[in-house]
Design a binder for these strands. Sequence first.
RNA 1: GCCAAGGUGGCAGAGUUCGGCCUAACGCGUUCGCCUGCAGAGCGAAUCUCCGCCGGUUCAAAUCCGGCCCUUGGCUCCA
Length: 495
Amino acid sequence: MTLSVTNTLSGEREEFEPQDDDDVLLYVCGLTVSDDAHLGHARLWMHADVMHRWLEHEGYDVHHVENFTDVNEKITARIGEDGFGDSEPEVARHFTEHVIRDMRGLNLKRAEVYPRVSEHVPQIRDLVETLVEKGYAYESNGSVYFDVTAFEDYGKLSNQRVEEMEAQGEAEERGEKRHPADFALWKAGGVSEDAVAEHRHEGLDPLDGPQGETWESPWGEGRPGWHIECSAMSMTHLGETIDIHVGGRDLVFPHHENEVAQSEAATGQTFARYWLHVGLLQTEADKMSSSLGNFFTVDDALEEFGVDVIRTFYLSTGYGAEQTFDDAAMNEAEERWDRLERAYEAAVDAADSPDAYASVEDEDLRGAVESTREAFREAMNDDFNVREAMAALIELARAVNTHVGDADEYDYRGLREAVEAFEDLGGDVFGLGFGGAAEGGDVAIAGDLVELLLDVREAEREAGNYDRADELRDELAALGVEVHDSEDGPSFRFE
RNA sequence: GCCAAGGUGGCAGAGUUCGGCCUAACGCGUUCGCCUGCAGAGCGAAUCUCCGCCGGUUCAAAUCCGGCCCUUGGCUCCA
């Protein structure tokens, strides 16, 4: 049973075989650091992260590179705003730091390298020079453009034809370009004032003017084009041919198409062997008036829902499909995560209880662990079908609940195996917080205090003072402590 | 107009690569039963015979073929 993925290049499902048996070269098309990241970005990261984790789980050494685009008009447009900084690098650093905090908060595995455009200008210049020398690019007024007609395979990723694009652009729109589909590899001069004005936020003095960085080049002072950066950084850190390139579906054309063209024209080698595109996150679209509050930053979402609920939300739809973010979806995610977490805690507690010392054998439980691992693996190998894999985990939760609820004596080994499956599959692969934070210090004391209150409440119950008992339970609930009565006495969990 | 992704039961969302185990997984919601002093959690059950529309292929189609409708993303220095 091997991994198969949907490759945008072929439009079909293909068996995944990395160039090297042990290593996987993974490039994730990163973010332009001109704003705080929102849940749409996080969805891409999360799916790339789960792919990374699954490949590692299957024994591969994953070399993960993810760029930050820190040279861009959108960044210069923010200069001087809200104390973000007085230069392009300062503004970029401000947002980069924020984005890294978000990534940590989302429990993403670290990439090996997070290259920045500003640190790869020499490589970009070299790449552009190579393209000019090979006849795939031409200089025009100090800018350099890629000549799409010179690259035979142009359009192979997005399935478009150069001839058809020809019809779209009127001659006067071409400006310095020979063909309307040609794109800039190197832009002459400083930042474009028009582009900056377009992204300039209100309340800023337009006379401040753009203050973007510029670099020397054989064609004069200028800045790198947008698409070239990914090619240069990918090649610098992972070589001419990578295994997997992950990106948002909105970037297939022109960005990824152009990456393929310029990279392959320069090296003569395949740029990326598998192109995996992540579907976009939709909001309740048509309420366009409230579009201000319509997009959630990662920051706010982390605050409101917590990592595990956010990850569970993303885990309920395959990476390739679109997903809608709304209250109902988040509520469902919350319920699903609670269910998993409760079952996990029940398994941990039961395995540690006196009833587990008898250690009977429950075939159903042990069978469930085994079928969960099998189903999970099969689902993940099926184009990273996270929803199916998640379903397998929930089946395990049911099996644990049934065992803990029905059995007089517990199957210690079966419970341990279940706990391990939760931690391995749900924790390591899905990045969910199973058994993560060790309880200590204040939390332990709080737990002892709750126990104390529950003892008091038990006394009230035995005395028939149910009003008082319910009051205590309600008050604890208000503090985030969920009380659960059973034959064996009360238990609780922190929400 | 062109390219791409998608239209599945109250919601959400797998399944379509390799047609039958799909009278459609997992979950959310609702209802009921067990449990409980009550509640929650848990377990069990019900709800939904149906997979955008039309036609075709087949013993058999959500899954294959043809046509149509709709939604979303992209279409040149803009992520």
